[in-house]
């Protein structure tokens, strides 16, 4: 199987503190992979290493076959990234945001125009295409940010708590977009605090204190721990307590 992400004993130390401790996992191309863990469990450090922003202390990892130590430039070209803060420029219009992000990934002019039109049409943003992003409702910004992260057709997109601060209906709509992208073959690597969202993933991993404590499909995980929700699994692993 084609591996989108593959790590082997990937470790990052800051002085004496071990932020991620020998994490080993594979993510298949086209998979929706949930990367869960409490705050401070080491999720962000792991993502930063996978995106080429942080050099690992030891261990190895490849992204779409590229090595995280030596091939960071190639990695940057094949990944997309979206954070909780949506990362759009509020003082630019919808169209300008799309064209800017396409532009820094080196898309040619005609392609930029086509992409902008396509995204605006898909998201039904026709009426506000030339309005400043600052004037859009949060849910629209979120979907636009996701489309922008995909503007250069990356093989893998990293979503760092992409649904923070959004209402449940908007979150549901956002997950529809994630499924569509996954169906087109994009690998989704997503972190989240919402355990109901964990249920939408093909497989999830749960990090506790820098280590991966569990990695499986949500169904298998619930069965193994004898609980009926991902929230139950998370409580047992992350807090060492059961909700029951």
């Amino acid at each position: 199987m084609d591996k989108a992400v593959s790590t082997d004993k990937l470790t990052k130390r800051f002085g004496d503190f071990v932020a991620t401790n020998e994490i080993t996992f594979d993510v298949a191309q086209g998979e929706i992979f949930g990367f869960l863990g409490a705050n401070g469990a080491g999720k962000t450090t792991a993502i930063r290493m996978l995106c080429g922003l942080l050099k690992p202390t030891s261990g190895s990892a490849t992204i779409a076959g590229f090595d995280v130590y030596r091939q960071t430039e190639q990695i940057k070209q094949v990944i997309g990234y979206m954070s909780q803060r949506f990362s759009l420029y509020e003082d630019l219009t919808v169209r300008e945001n799309i064209r800017f992000y396409g532009g820094i990934y080196g898309l040619p002019k005609t392609e930029l125009r086509r992409k902008a039109d396509e995204i605006i049409q898909t998201l039904e943003l026709g009426t506000v295409a030339d309005k400043l992003v600052a004037s859009l409702p949060l849910g629209w910004k979120q979907r636009l940010a996701f489309s922008v992260a995909l503007v250069h057709d990356p093989r893998i997109v990293f979503l760092d708590e992409p649904t923070g601060g959004v209402d449940p209906i908007t979150r549901r709509q956002f997950w529809d977009m994630i499924y569509e992208a996954a169906n087109r073959g994009t690998t989704i690597f997503v972190t989240t605090h919402y355990m109901d969202e964990a249920e939408y993933c093909n497989r999830v991993s749960i990090m506790v204190d820098g280590r991966i404590k569990a990695l499986d499909t949500p169904a298998a995980m619930k069965q193994a721990f004898g609980v009926d929700s991902m929230d139950g699994v998370f409580q047992i692993l992350a807090r060492g307590t059961s909700t029951k």
Binding site: C51, L53, K76, F86, S87, E90, Y101, Y105, G106
Partner: peptide, 13 residues
């Protein structure tokens, strides 16, 4: 502050 720097750092720039 707005988090756009992260995205720029992840980009090929």
């Amino acid at each position: 502050e707005t988090g756009t720097m992260e995205v720029l750092m992840v980009s090929p720039l």
